[in-house]
């Protein structure tokens, strides 16, 4: 039997068992969600994100006083910085702790002895953590939306919803990366270390490196743009800005180039990059996790 046929038969098996497949995933998701809610780290991150988001929203509006004009652009710019720092840290560390932690405690062995496939376990964990992350973001955004409503700014509800959507995608992408880290690490301390390193690289090192190389090598705007959107944080940032301003001219020549050449396709390209960052690390971790013979 060729590998393709083998895969096909496996696929048919999976489909024929699909109700139990999905319910298995859901059971793990529910368990993961509950565990996340009861973990101190998670509550701490939620609290920190909420307080910081409210603080940023409040401060960005306080300067204008009674003028009744509140630039959502400024609030969003403040929130952008905060999101790009906190959300990847949250999602990466949540993902990194998941499989490696269970492996270290020995509970992974127990879970895999259940009549479920490894894919189900991993997908369940991803779903549960993903929903928990989005919930925690919703609380943060919800409370700061209440602050914005109270301060009565000229806030665009549509762009706020877009901001939440892109942030959720960023969180899911970083979670996916975190789970990949968790699958390849033996110990949870190693996984957390790698996650922190990846966070530092994505948030600071890659941007600073790209800045330096764009100056040193006199990169052209299209090269800078192509290199920048590889970083999910940059495509997140550009996605939010393009949805708010309908153009990237805020980002100087590179942004103007992207807006003019890509036009209406730009938000889709940026969203697609984020989507790829969700799918590929998750797919890779499923592949690695199901191939691994040892626990």
């Amino acid at each position: 039997m060729s590998t393709i046929e083998l895969k096909r038969s496996m696929f048919h098996e999976a489909v024929s068992k699909s109700p139990s497949f999905i319910s298995g995933v859901c059971s793990f998701a529910k368990r993961e969600f509950r565990d996340a809610l009861s973990s101190k780290w998670f509550l701490l991150y939620t609290l920190a994100f909420t307080i910081l988001a409210v603080g940023v929203s409040y401060l960005s509006l306080s300067g204008v006083g009674s003028h009744g004009f509140a630039g959502f652009g400024r609030t969003a710019a403040g929130l952008l910085n905060l999101i790009m720092l906190v959300v990847p840290l949250m999602a990466l560390s949540a993902g990194a702790g998941s499989i490696a932690g269970e492996r270290e405690r020995g509970t992974l062995l127990y879970m895999l002895s259940q009549p479920v496939s490894r894919t189900q376990v991993l997908l369940g964990k991803y779903l549960g953590l993903g929903v928990a992350l989005v919930c925690s973001l919703c609380i943060g955004f919800g409370v700061s939306a209440a602050v914005l409503a109270w301060r009565a700014g000229g806030v665009g509800v549509g762009s706020y919803a877009m901001l939440i959507g892109f942030t959720s995608m960023l969180a899911l992408a970083m979670l996916s990366l975190g789970i990949l880290i968790s699958v390849v690490s033996r110990r949870s301390s190693v996984a957390t270390g790698i996650a922190l390193f990846v966070w530092l690289s994505l948030v600071f090192v890659s941007d600073l490196g790209l800045m330096a190389s764009s100056v040193l090598f006199k990169l052209r705007v299209q090269e800078i743009f192509a290199l920048a959107i590889v970083n999910p944080l940059q495509s997140f940032k550009m996605g939010v800005i393009v949805n708010m301003n309908a153009s990237l001219d805020v980002l100087g020549p590179v942004g103007a180039y992207a807006s003019q050449t890509l036009g209406d396709a730009l938000p889709w390209i940026l969203g697609g990059t984020l989507g790829a960052w969700i799918i590929f690390p998750l797919g890779l971790s499923i592949l690695l996790f199901s191939r691994r013979s040892s626990v």
Binding site: G128, A132, C135, C138, V143, A145, V155
Partner: peptide, 27 residues
């Protein structure tokens, strides 16, 4: 400045917290 957008934003706030609450309740 319009007060209606403040109201709508209040709606958004409520909706988001409800979503989080519903997820927590169901899952």
């Amino acid at each position: 400045g319009s007060s209606r957008s403040g109201l709508r934003m209040g709606g958004v706030a409520c909706a988001l917290i409800l979503i989080a609450g519903a997820c927590a309740a169901v899952l």
